[in-house]
Simulated assay, not measured.
Amino acid sequence: MLALRMTAAGPAGCVDAPLTANDAARAVETVLEKFLDAGLCRAREVDPVFAGDVADRVAAFTRRGGKRLRTAFAWCGWRAAGGEGDAGAVLQLGAALELVQACALIHDDVMDGSLLRRGEPAVHVDFARMHRAAEMTGPPESFATAAAVLAGDLALAWADDLLTENALRSPHGWRLYREWQALRGEMVAGQYRDIHAQAAGSSGVDEAMTIATLKSALYTVERPLALGASLTAADARTVDALRSAGRCAGLAFQLRDDLLGAFGDPALTGKPSGDDLRVRKLTYLLAVATRLAEDSGDEEAVDALGPVTAPRSDRTIDRMRAALERTGARAVVEAKITELAGTSLRHFEETGAAPLVRREFAALVDQAVGMVPDLTGEST
């Protein structure tokens, strides 16, 4: 257990107990609850209909969030850069990251037409149900899309509010803001490259990796690590090592997500399996499979994986899964995940972080992408 405490001085409230990365992931719930309650009060003062329909849904969606990995990675970056003492600023940063994640997921589900998220109807699906139940006029889908876009916007606005409060209090506020500024721009760029590649029917491996980096790797791991470090007087060498570690771990995380999207069990992932295949989203998995099929002359696989003008049926999705297996692409991606995870741990060691902090980071990488080799000198 790391000798680190949250105190009454921090935004999290009075919590006098040692804090680890997993503790931070749990403790951020307290910060989120306090902020969301305040946000809902402000929303009700603005307009009760907006509060009940939009703000309540954003708060509910955020509260049923996942593993809070971004908070934990921010904590690791803070500790690796010499952070100690009151962890309130790190937890507030973590809460802002969770709200950015809520924005990204709400908008992503709209763009992808996904019906399920976190084991429940996606936000736009819930808005469509509300429209039908209230017997409102006009197409439910159009209303739901517009309302979900606004819900995502609100989540991002709330995230910015939290980050601004944090930056104004921090002696390193300018560094914190610049990292945040980069994160938001990269996230939008990644989402656009994603839909652009899908519309263009792209299959390139390099393009797939660019999308994975912009859309996920940066804002899932690299930026949270750097944001945590920006709360300290971290030197350039430490921050560079954190960026390298985060980019590798973030890519491994996205590649695992690609595999789960194609082969995962919805009961375990909380989202439908095969949605990315149905719309032929350009993933590293798809790009590798296409290249392998072309190189081997497997015309059946090339045809199964190629662009189409309409969403695929369940039968054609099964053909795609078979092609992903037969070409060896699934095995290639599994090997790439292991390679990236191991490289990430080696970069993190270059920060000079204490062994216990390195062990915490290794455990997070393991949690995010699956079992990884122990490169910390201690059992994970």
Rank of each mutant, 00 (worst) to 15 (best):
M1N: 10
M1K: 10
A8G: 14
A12V: 15
G13F: 03
G13H: 12
L19Y: 04
D23T: 13
A27Q: 13
E29D: 15
K34V: 07
A38S: 15
C41M: 11
C41K: 14
D47N: 15
D47H: 14
D47C: 14
P48F: 05
D53H: 09
F61M: 12
T62R: 03
T62F: 08
R63I: 04
G65E: 13
A72K: 04
F73P: 03
A74T: 06
A74P: 06
C76V: 06
G85E: 09
G88Q: 01
A89H: 10
L97W: 11
D112K: 03
R118C: 06
V123L: 11
M130Y: 08
A133D: 15
S142F: 08
A146M: 10
L154D: 05
L156C: 11
W158V: 04
T164Q: 12
R178S: 13
E179H: 14
W180G: 07
A189E: 15
A189Q: 13
G190D: 00
Q191N: 09
Y192Q: 12
R193W: 14
R193Q: 14
A197H: 05
A200C: 12
S202C: 11
A208F: 00
A217I: 01
T220H: 10
V221P: 06
D235Y: 09
D240N: 08
L242V: 08
C248S: 15
C248G: 03
A249I: 06
D257S: 01
A262F: 00
F263H: 10
K271S: 08
S273I: 02
R280A: 13
L282N: 01
A293T: 08
D295L: 14
D303L: 12
S313F: 13
S313V: 07
A322V: 02
T338K: 12
G342V: 08
R346C: 08
F348M: 07
G352M: 05
G352L: 05
A353N: 07
A354M: 11
L356G: 03
V357Y: 00
A363I: 02
V369W: 01
D374P: 04
